[in-house]
């Protein structure tokens, strides 16, 4: 599936981030450390899947014809997906999932706040909804950083390890390619490179309170935006797209 229109490509990119993040979170259902967390994690997962649907529905509208939200989720292969690598990493243990979430939420809140000012009214409307969710997500994941970082030695170590593993994937959030830069000039997209200092401030402050160390920068792994993924995304898609691939063209 070839996407040419810059706005559509941008909208699909945001949809991909949300869908893949939602997928990873949904893997926790019936596997959380206690029942309240089954519920809370699925709540957040639902927010992300809901967000993906809004972005994809908008992209489908922009493309017209037979394209629907499901076309983007179920009919594209790994090289067409443009989500951040951070979103697709396997869920790992509870510390890994919550650290990923925290690092992403600390980005997602200022991102959605900025997107509320997009000159594209649809994007601004989706952002307004997403911003409220992100505010809650960040509060929740920050609370978990405190509990796990300042809980037991084991929880502290698990968190610190997770942060070290995740850190190299955070650079990608602030990367702006030509697509973004052009849309920033038009007032449509968010200049994510300008969000880095806010993000780092939030992260540093929370981790400090949680007695966790901010990992040292070792450069960043990127590629998601041009469809160069980790091996893991293919397995997500194989599972997610099974029905549409095995029984194409049917209504469910």
């Amino acid at each position: 599936m070839k996407l040419n229109d810059p706005l559509t490509r941008y909208v699909v990119r945001l949809g991909d981030d949300a869908l893949i993040m939602g997928h990873r979170l949904s893997e926790w259902m019936s596997r959380a450390p206690f029942l309240e967390e089954d519920i809370a994690l699925s709540n957040v997962a639902l927010d992300f899947v809901g967000r993906a649907r809004l972005f994809y529905q908008y992209a489908a509208e922009l493309m017209g014809g037979e394209v629907t939200e499901d076309t983007f989720a179920y009919q594209r292969d790994v090289r067409d997906f443009t989500n951040l690598l951070l979103c697709e990493l396997p869920r790992g243990d509870f510390a890994f999932t919550l650290c990923r979430q925290f690092l992403y939420d600390a980005f997602s809140l200022p991102f959605t706040q900025a997107l509320c000012h997009s000159t594209d009214p649809q994007l601004a409307a989706i952002a307004a909804k997403a911003e409220k969710e992100s505010r809650y997500h960040l509060r929740r994941s920050s609370d978990w950083m405190l509990r796990l970082g300042d809980g037991t030695q084991e929880s502290h170590e698990r968190c610190q390890n997770a942060l070290e593993q995740l850190w190299i994937y955070t650079d990608e959030m602030f990367e702006c390619d030509d697509l973004v830069n052009d849309l920033v000039v038009a007032g449509v997209a968010v200049n994510t490179s300008s969000l880095r200092s806010t993000w780092l401030e939030t992260v540093t402050e929370t981790l400090r309170t949680a007695t966790l160390a901010v990992p040292e920068s070792q450069g960043g792994v990127t590629g998601g935006r041009v469809g160069i993924h980790t091996d893991d995304l293919g397995f997500i898609l194989a599972e997610m797209q099974f029905m549409q691939r095995a029984y194409p063209g049917l209504q469910w």
Binding site: M29, V49, M240
Partner: peptide
């Protein structure tokens, strides 16, 4: 829950997630 990752459409996926979440809530 084992069909959440394989639900055939995004709408069905969201509904199923909400349903399984409700079951957990009932348990609670």
């Amino acid at each position: 829950g084992n069909w959440i990752s394989r639900a055939p459409t995004l709408e069905r996926k969201a509904i199923l997630m909400a349903k399984v979440q409700d079951e957990a809530g009932h348990g609670l």
